[in-house]
Design a protein around this nucleic acid. Structure first.
Lengths: 194, 194
DNA sequence: CAAATTTTGTACTAATTAGTACAGAATAAA
DNA sequence: TTTATTCTGTACTAATTAGTACAAAATTTG
């Protein structure tokens, strides 16, 4: 392949863009701001991302989801009890830290922040969040089969509940609730996994 | 008081602005768009809302919360069983309709959509959502005292759970879930109110 | 009616926006 | 080395942005 070589790696710059999108909503993030964070110029950007800001955002959502889902799936697959892995994720949200306190879930944010006009991107975010739900469902089904769970409730429903609780706590966190209150909330909502 | 009379009612135009803010996030809503919806010119607007768009948004959040909280409190106070009123609100969300399917909760949206730079507005949204939590908590406490609830769990915790479930389902709804799935989710999360 | 007061609409500014055009730079292949 | 190819950085456009300035309009009070 002839031609001047790219001075950047697309995956790397998408990741840099993600950290900008995590701080503000899509519409409020300017292309200039993204370019500065990505460290490339307009020429390079609009050549690599011909769909402009929208394409960048969609790829950012996809990359984030791939990495996050992959990490969670691996952790569940390698643990003796996948349900414990899921529990630890929720308790980690309850603890939080200053940097992530007001960030929420990248995919959930997208779902809430996207205006009605950009249906295609919102559908992508919805589908990617659906993957999280499926991971929860699969882990519950596996644990039920292994006799690691008391509940006989539909694993689909429990998966939906966990995904919904995930969505909720990432919003409720932003109300400034203490880790103690959030821990009690997690306790209550994960009782079904005992 | 002498002077040319106002051609508009501030509460009315704030309400009109609210319906614009409901469709898109704060940052993405232009002042021009708001003015068009409000039906007033720049001169009038910047005189009545000297804090500009931010003041308008904060007053919009406050007005929305006042009206919504008032309606909910009245409904609970006038019902034989306040818990049934709360349940009906959640089942109504599960049913939804095309117009509100992707709208979510105005206050929750604010919490998620506001960038980190506008802390003061986010704190207002957090405080107003806290009112919802308090209404839930008070209703639970009252029902417990009246022997209408089996659970002896801390009413504060149940109130927090309901507020969190409220936050969650307004996001989960946007994943395109069917009313049937959402109803099952409500069933599961309101079991504690049986 | 005249003066004081308040509101309105228009015209304007200065900054920022997303995206395009294109000359030139850097490479691989012939 | 020449040619074909791909990428980069700069300069540009045309639209939109939030907010200001201010003259004229509409009212109350004296």
């Amino acid at each position: 392949m002839a031609g001047r070589p790219k001075i950047f790696d697309e995956n790397v710059v998408v990741e840099k863009a993600t950290s900008v999108f995590l701080d503000k909503c899509y519409d409020a993030t300017s292309a200039d701001e993204l370019l500065a964070a990505m460290g490339i110029g307009k020429g390079s950007f609009y050549l690599a991302f011909q769909g402009g800001k929208q394409e960048l955002y969609q790829r950012s959502l996809q990359q984030f989801s791939d990495r996050f889902s992959g990490k969670l799936e691996t952790a569940i697959a390698n643990a003796p009890n996948g349900i414990d892995v899921i529990k630890s994720y929720f308790y980690a949200i309850a603890e939080g830290n200053k940097a992530t306190k007001y960030r929420g879930c990248y995919l959930g944010n997208a779902l809430v922040q996207l205006s009605e006009k950009d249906n295609s991107t919102r559908e992508i975010a919805a589908r990617l969040l659906g993957r999280l739900q499926e991971i929860f469902t699969a882990a519950v089904r596996k644990a039920q089969a292994a006799g690691q769970l008391k509940t006989t409730a539909d694993p689909e429903l429990i998966g939906l509940h966990l995904c919904n609780f995930w969505n909720g706590i990432h919003v409720t966190k932003r109300m400034g609730k203490s880790p103690k209150a959030l821990r009690a909330l997690v306790d209550l909502n994960l009782q079904i996994l005992s």
